[in-house]
Design a protein around this nucleic acid. Structure first.
Length: 127
DNA sequence: GCATTGACGAAGG
DNA sequence: CCCTTCGCCAATG
């Protein structure tokens, strides 16, 4: 079940007064990524129904740093399997190290066998 | 309140 | 096949 995040506490509230289902869902999905698997921003966006809003997923990851929850953002890469978000971690190498620690091979800032270990939220969550 | 910027992605040249 | 443009939506200046 998706625990509702207190917008005023975890995330800033939209000026339009709109609910942050998007961010909530993003966190929820990312938290469910199995260890040793990765997914992409676009896949998450697709699961949320707005495939064109992949950028917002990345933005949510950025917001995940401020969130109390520990979001395994290192398991989220771009569609290419590239660690584009590594620069947003504490250290540029942290993301890669975390992935390697989980058994994910990383070469040249890209997840090896990305397609194999790719985790599709749409399938796993049985939409 | 408008303009610019993103941890993206697909499409067009 | 590489580079550019556009779309998406929220945050920031």
């Amino acid at each position: 079940m998706r625990k509702k995040i207190k917008s005023s506490d975890e995330l800033p509230l939209n000026h339009s007064g709109k609910e942050y289902n998007f961010f909530e869902n993003v966190f929820d999905v990312v938290l469910q990524i199995p260890k040793g698997r990765v997914t992409s921003y676009g896949a998450i966006a697709q699961y949320l129904g707005t495939k064109m809003s992949a950028r917002m997923v990345g933005w949510a990851m950025n917001a995940s740093h401020q969130s109390s929850k520990k979001i395994p953002a290192h398991r989220v890469v771009n569609r290419n399997g590239m660690l584009t978000g590594k620069h947003h971690f504490a250290t540029p190498t942290l993301m890669e190290e975390l992935l390697k620690k989980e058994g994910i091979a990383v070469k040249d800032d890209t997840v090896v066998d990305f397609k194999k270990i790719f985790w599709n939220p749409k399938e796993s969550l049985n939409v």
